[in-house]
Simulated scan of single mutants.
Amino acid sequence: MFQLLWILMIGLVLGLIARLLLRGPQSIPWWLTMLLGAAGAWLGNAVSGWLGVRHTTGIDWTRHLLQLGFAIALVALAAPAWSRSHPRR
C-alpha cells in the first residue's frame, strides 16, 4: 500500500514539473497529471533498464532525465486530447 502512495507522489511531482516546463496552458486535471507522471516514471525506468543505466553508483541522472522526458511527452500528448474532449463552458 505504501509503495502505491509513493508511486503516486512521485507521479504528481513529475507531472507538475512536466507541466511547468511545457509552454502554454495544459487544462488537464490534477489526477491526470499524477497518472501521466507515474506512467512517465515507469517508462523511464523501463528504458533505463533496457539501456543498462538503471542502477549506477551515486545519483541516477540518466534514469531521472528519462523519467522526466517521458512525463513531459505524455503530458504534451494528453493535454490537447483532453481539451478537445472536455471543452470549457
Rank of each mutant, 00 (worst) to 15 (best):
R23I: 13
M1I: 14
G24H: 09
D60A: 15
L65V: 12
S27Q: 12
R89N: 13
N45A: 13
H55Y: 13
L16V: 12
G52W: 05
L74Y: 05
L66P: 06
L32M: 14
S83C: 11
P80I: 15
P29N: 14
L65T: 09
T33R: 00
L68T: 04
L51T: 08
A41M: 07
T57S: 10
D60I: 03
A39D: 01
I72N: 00
G44L: 03
R89H: 14
L20V: 09
R54H: 09
H86K: 13
L36D: 02
L74V: 08
L66H: 03
L22F: 02
G58W: 00
V75L: 05
T56E: 12
F70R: 02
G40A: 08
I17T: 08
R23W: 10
R89M: 10
L21P: 04
L68N: 01
S83I: 13
V47I: 13
L43E: 08
I28E: 00
P25M: 10
A73N: 08
L8E: 12
A78Y: 03
A71F: 02
L51G: 00
H86N: 15
A18G: 06
A76C: 10
T62N: 08
V53L: 00
W50P: 01
P80G: 10
A76M: 12
A71W: 02
T33Y: 00
M9P: 06
H55R: 09
W50M: 12
G58Y: 01
Q26L: 05
L4F: 14
L5G: 14
L51W: 09
G69S: 10
V53T: 12
L66E: 01
L4I: 14
T57E: 10
A41Q: 06
G52V: 05
Q3M: 12
R63V: 01
L66Q: 09
I28K: 00
S48N: 02
V53K: 06
S85T: 15
R88P: 07
R84W: 15
H55I: 11
V47P: 01
L43N: 05
G49F: 01
A38T: 08
H86P: 07
M1D: 12
L66W: 00
L32N: 04
L51P: 04
A81Q: 15
L43I: 14
R19T: 11
L22I: 12
L65N: 11
V13F: 09
L8M: 15
R23L: 13
L35G: 08
R63A: 07
G37A: 07
T56L: 09
L36K: 03
P87L: 10
L12Q: 07
T57K: 05
G52Y: 02
I7D: 14
F70I: 08
I17D: 03
I7R: 15
A73Y: 02
F2N: 12
L22H: 05
T57W: 03
T57F: 09
A76R: 13
G24M: 05
G40L: 05
S85Y: 14
G37P: 05
G11F: 02
R23V: 12
A73L: 15
G49D: 06
G11P: 04
G58I: 08
I10T: 14
S85M: 15
W50A: 11
W82D: 02
P25G: 11
I10L: 14
T57V: 11
S85V: 15
G24I: 13
R88F: 06
T33M: 04
L77N: 01
W30C: 02
A38P: 06
L14T: 07
A46M: 10
A73D: 10
L22P: 04
L68R: 04
R19N: 11
F70E: 04
